[in-house]
Design a protein around this nucleic acid. Structure first.
Length: 266
DNA sequence: GTGTCATGCGTAT
DNA sequence: TACGCCTGACACG
């Protein structure tokens, strides 16, 4: 269940184990057998993330492109390796480490040009720290009349934000999700970019999304907050706002739910 | 066991 | 706007 922080964390943790290693690749499920054969025995040079996409660059210049979609999951293990699930699309191993992938939306081999095309289609990624990120993000928002709550889910505008971060970021800045994207002030755009960078980084480090900060949690550290205490808005409809105690509300934008506080966000 | 739901996205209508 | 795609966890009987 991946937003951008999950993919960057995967690139970092998997990279520690596999970058520079000759890997065995198979597809127990069989749906990626030809691709697995092509990669089997090659040296994996580096794993890279942009937005919600992962790119595994191999010595031959083959690039394994993975997008987890809604269901995809990675599992890393050390020997003795567990039995792969029947749905295991890709199993990548060295003698010391094994990566198990099930349920990806996309799993394909690209050449470097096609890889660049995929990356170019994505908006700036807050976790890649582009120097002009805020300006680029602002430019992409400025021409759009769609609600900001829809715009920040559009991976061509900013890459890596998903449904949890959408509700959380807008709550934290007091922005109504239905505000037209092009009506956001320069200050709000900058604050939104900066907060997105901070929150995605925190999620990458922690391995989970925790936005509630000590001020709103009696000083408890983020890492220690129990499930149900970690978020401000996401899936909290009917519960009381952690800041003003009015009820959190929920609406559908493009078939995905958004949660917000009518009193704090406008 | 069956049904439902989910942190996503592309394509068709 | 609807549907298809991919999997697994959990609620319910």
């Amino acid at each position: 269940m991946p937003e951008g922080h999950v993919l960057h964390r995967a690139a970092r943790l998997q990279g520690k184990r596999f970058n520079g290693c000759e890997v065995a690749v198979e597809s127990p499920q069989g749906r990626f057998s030809a691709g697995a054969d092509q990669l089997d025995g090659q040296t994996l040079e580096v794993i890279e993330a942009k937005g919600k996409h992962l790119f595994y660059r191999f010595e031959s210049s083959d690039v394994l492109h993975i997008h987890l979609g809604l269901f995809g999951k990675f599992r890393l293990s050390r020997p003795p390796f567990p039995e792969p699930s029947p749905a295991c699309r890709v199993l990548m191993s060295t003698s010391d480490d094994q990566l198990h992938l099930a349920g990806p939306n996309q799993c394909e081999i690209l050449d470097p040009e096609a890889t660049a095309d995929v990356m170019d289609r994505l908006g700036p990624d807050p976790l890649r720290g582009p120097a002009d990120g805020a300006e680029d993000f602002g430019r992409r928002l400025s021409t759009r009349k769609i609600p900001i709550g829809r715009a920040i889910m559009d991976q061509k505008i900013v890459s890596g934000i998903g449904n949890v971060y959408r509700s959380e970021l807008l709550f934290m800045l007091g922005i109504d999700p239905f505000t037209p994207a092009n009506k956001l002030g320069v200050d709000d755009v900058e604050r939104l970019w900066a907060l997105t960078v901070d929150e995605l980084k925190a999620g990458e480090r922690l391995g989970r999304i925790v936005t509630v900060t000590p001020d709103d949690s009696d000083g408890a550290k983020r890492r220690e907050l129990a499930a149900g205490e970690r978020l401000y808005a996401y899936k909290r409809d009917g519960k009381s706002c952690r800041r003003c105690h009015e009820p959190i509300v929920c609406a559908d934008i493009d078939g995905r739910n958004v949660w917000w506080c009518r009193s704090c966000q406008h």
